[in-house]
Amino acid sequence: MPTVHDTHIQNRFLVHPNHANSNGVLHGGNLMKWLDEVGGMAAMRFAGETCVTAQINSLAFERPIQIGDTALVEAYVYDAGQTSVHVALRAQRENPRTGETEKTTESSFTFVAIDDDGSPVPVPDLSVETDEGERLRQRALEADY
């Protein structure tokens, strides 16, 4: 049975000028793509199956990420249904020179596990075996998604 900790993934994306919008900061669509990719990886790690995006439950852009900063994207599974996987996502602006971070975005996506024919398949139960896993799960459940 997969645990919250097993599904926890962090990835970094350096923000280049081609990722920017007309305001000179990271385009929200690029960040959404990165959230979807990292969230999908967490869902697939949990389900052991291909997972596709079913729903963006919430997405709150709190502050921008500047060109030259790193977008630090964190994802983990916090709940599951019969074929669905609920993934909490958070993005932070990270200064690549100092490592200083600041939360910029919080989100929740739902993915569905599918077989080779594209039909939904069952997913396992989620296990929480560590204090850190429980803290992450509670953070997601208490968030205003």
Rank of each mutant, 00 (worst) to 15 (best):
T3N: 07
V4G: 06
H5C: 00
T7Y: 08
H8M: 12
H8S: 04
I9S: 03
I9G: 06
V15K: 08
V15D: 03
H16N: 06
H16V: 05
P17A: 09
P17D: 03
H19Y: 10
A20K: 14
A20D: 02
N21R: 12
N21T: 06
N23W: 13
N23R: 14
G24W: 10
G29W: 11
M32F: 09
M32V: 12
K33C: 02
W34R: 05
L35R: 07
V38W: 10
V38G: 07
V38T: 15
V38I: 15
A42H: 11
A42I: 06
A43L: 10
M44L: 05
M44A: 15
M44K: 13
R45M: 03
R45L: 10
F46M: 08
F46W: 11
F46C: 03
G48L: 05
G48C: 07
G48I: 09
G48S: 07
E49M: 13
E49K: 15
T50K: 14
C51D: 07
T53D: 03
A54Q: 12
A54Y: 04
A54T: 09
I56R: 02
I56H: 00
N57G: 13
A60L: 12
E62R: 15
R63Y: 01
P64N: 01
P64H: 07
I65Q: 01
I65P: 01
I67D: 00
I67C: 07
G68L: 02
A71C: 07
L72W: 08
L72M: 12
V73T: 04
V73K: 01
Y76Q: 02
Y76V: 03
V77M: 04
D79S: 14
A80L: 00
A80Y: 01
G81M: 03
T83C: 11
V85Q: 06
V85M: 08
H86L: 14
H86S: 15
V87H: 03
V87M: 09
A88N: 13
R90D: 00
A91D: 00
A91V: 09
E94P: 05
E94L: 12
N95A: 06
P96Y: 02
R97E: 13
T98I: 02
T98K: 00
G99D: 01
G99N: 06
G99I: 04
E100A: 14
E100N: 03
T101I: 15
E102N: 04
K103S: 14
T104Y: 07
T105Y: 08
T105S: 07
T105R: 11
E106M: 11
S107I: 02
S108P: 00
S108A: 15
S108V: 15
T110E: 02
F111H: 12
F111K: 12
A113E: 09
I114C: 06
I114P: 10
I114A: 08
I114T: 04
I114N: 09
D115Q: 11
G118K: 13
P120I: 08
V121D: 11
P122F: 09
V123T: 06
V123Y: 09
P124C: 01
T130D: 04
T130S: 15
E132Q: 12
G133M: 03
R135V: 01
R135E: 13
R137F: 04
R137M: 08
R137G: 04
R137T: 03
R137A: 12
R137N: 03
R139Y: 06
A140E: 10
A140C: 05
A140G: 06
E142I: 04
D144P: 00
D144V: 13
D144C: 04
Y145C: 00
